[in-house]
Nucleic acid binder design. Structure first.
Lengths: 348, 348
DNA sequence: CTTTAGCACTCCGGGGAAAGGAGTGCTAAA
DNA sequence: TTTAGCACTCCTTTCCCCGGAGTGCTAAAG
């Protein structure tokens, strides 16, 4: 027995109806929603076949049919119509992204909240470096004999700074030499290399200068590693509570804990602009009854961000996918190829 | 009829039992938990009185009694035993606070999460400046003709920096003059005053310098206002779902939305170390069925932080209060009177 | 061979009624 | 003033019944 076109059409109707209503779909309903006119009896035969083929499931005898993960998969791969965003929706997305360009992090988490309220499912976001971030410029601004501000400019164009308290007094005259040294020997290299080179110059400098140097490098190493690391934030977990499948407080609590606590193992995309994971396709146990849609976007030339939506398996894939990719595109445009925008904040 | 000691004792038993079980408390239960031995019939008489006095409520005839807000209030004011933290608990608190001293914000929200998991209720946190934050030092580091890093040191000892893109080329020679101007005229004053003074010098500078100056000031104003503003973060909203009173998904959703979206109007303390708000004592409609315990702590000399716990009216006031003040004390100690700790980060 | 109509059957879900239980209020005695 | 006893109330749980939605099967029609 193979999958005829009519079977596919029926599957499509079942999936879409179930997405809308969260109720098992019966043969009569299907018959009335189908294009050509067929009787419910015919549909019933087809339905029995679709169950045998594994695309549908029956909660119990004499209930309607519900799509199985395999059914959703087929729907997503073949049947789903690429949904276009309406003008109004595009407007709304752009508007959401018209936030005052503050720091990257804030924009990202704000975007996450926006997406969440837009698709009515929880979202999560992360940014990962494509390349290693390196230092590209140092400055030291003496405040007084015992303190000094380090300013570090990174290859990602972000600037970070910190006030250092010094153990030993430092002769202000010597600072410029140190800055020159920093800029000539510690820029454009990995953090491991930076530590290495620090060791090399250890005995060529007076102790108080070396101390300042190593404090500076320690700070830079921290900052660079932090910048390269991906941080994950989630938003809109409460949306879950609106869905009938999570009216059971225990279930909701379980998934919510997973989203807020163990976010490390949320699905991350390999490549490609978008990925859909349905139910058991998720590795994490906690997500086995839910689906995830992830999209990625570019941040400048060397970073890649990611934004995902978590929802029930019957989530409205077409709409979510369309909106999510709308956002991803918007974000790419926002801090896209041309480098970070002029008013990019030094991550505060 | 007045409130005898025995009535108070009964009230105490009712409150504590109800806190534990979330079920109305019956006369027999009370009799068995009371010190002196009295029969349930006696208790029943007393209970009827307590209802008349408004300290207890009866969900319906022939159900047990439940404390009214007035009853909780009396309990909190008079009956509640100041609970001591066990050694193990103190340990645990200190341990939670032993996080690598990173930026203030991060510590605060981390503390929030810790408290939340420790009391099993959602928490919220905010830091507010006691005094206005002002700029105390500016620096401009030219990167190239068209860009420049501003470094701003604030009176709170925090350092922020940003890369500015310039509209017009600036002669590098002139930068030092500008820095001098900034440090002499724009430090130690309010943001309003800064804007004022900016206007005053408008026609005394060549246009490209003035542009740079105003960009710098605009950034500083933003940064200062941001630093003075209180930001509120919440944590552990999911804890709600564990409580029987929020098994109803609608209720949980409502409160959760309030916590995550409209946090502006969460109760803030006036003064004193701790405040307990019970049910209707809360102004916000959304909190009228819940209680809030807020504690405050000091950050350096000029800031004050606040940490609150939201829970059902039957929340375990004694324990929550003890643990919360444990945390508040710990936080005060952590970045207490002696000024910010040496490794205080420039908010990244 | 496929489609359709008809029909008996299954199973869920809602609506009472009945049973059980916890707790009260009242009365009368200690 | 306290206590024991008892009838009563009202919630909760359970059970059962019934209606409806939907199925599977069979037999007839295209």
């Amino acid at each position: 027995m193979e999958l005829t076109d009519r079977k596919k059409q029926i599957l499509k109707v079942v999936v879409e109806d179930y997405i809308r209503t969260a109720e098992p779909v019966g043969s009569k309903t299907i018959a009335s929603q189908m294009e050509g006119k067929v009787s419910s009896a015919t549909i019933r035969n087809e339905l029995a076949d679709l169950v045998d083929l594994g695309y549908l499931e029956q909660p119990h005898t004499s209930a309607g049919r519900v799509p199985s993960p395999k059914g959703y998969r087929l729907y997503v791969n073949e049947l789903m119509e690429q949904q276009k965003l309406s003008i109004a929706e595009t407007e709304k997305i752009n508007q959401s992204l018209q936030l005052k360009m503050e720091e990257l992090d804030r924009v990202i988490s704000q975007a996450g909240r926006a997406v969440s309220s837009f698709v009515n499912y929880p979202t999560y976001m992360a940014a990962t470096g494509k390349k290693k971030v390196t230092a590209c410029r140092f400055d030291l601004l003496p405040v007084d004999e015992r303190s000094c501000i380090v300013v570090l400019m990174m290859s990602s164009n972000r600037v970070k700074s910190q006030l250092l308290r010094l153990q030993l007094k430092v002769d202000l005259e010597q600072i410029p030499t140190l800055v020159t040294l920093l800029n000539s020997h510690f820029t454009g290299v990995s953090t491991a290399e930076m530590n290495q080179r620090l060791m090399n110059v250890a005995d060529q400098l007076p102790p108080q200068l070396f101390l300042l140097l190593s404090q500076t490098i320690a700070y830079a190493v921290d900052a660079l590693e932090d910048a390269g690391q991906r941080e994950i934030v989630t938003a809109g977990a409460k949306e879950l509570l609106k869905l009938p499948e999570f009216r059971d407080a225990d279930k909701a609590h379980e998934l919510m804990s997973f989203l807020t606590d163990s976010k490390e193992n949320l699905p991350m995309p390999e490549e490609g602009p978008m990925k859909i994971l349905i139910g058991p396709e998720n590795v994490s146990e906690a997500l086995k009854d839910t689906s995830v849609v992830v999209a990625s976007y570019d941040i400048g030339d060397d970073m890649r961000g990611l934004i995902g939506v978590v929802g029930p398996t019957r989530m409205d894939y077409a709409t979510v996918a369309a909106r999510l990719s709308g956002f991803a595109d918007g974000l790419t445009r926002l801090f896209g190829k041309q480098g970070l925008p002029p008013k990019e904040d030094a991550k505060e």
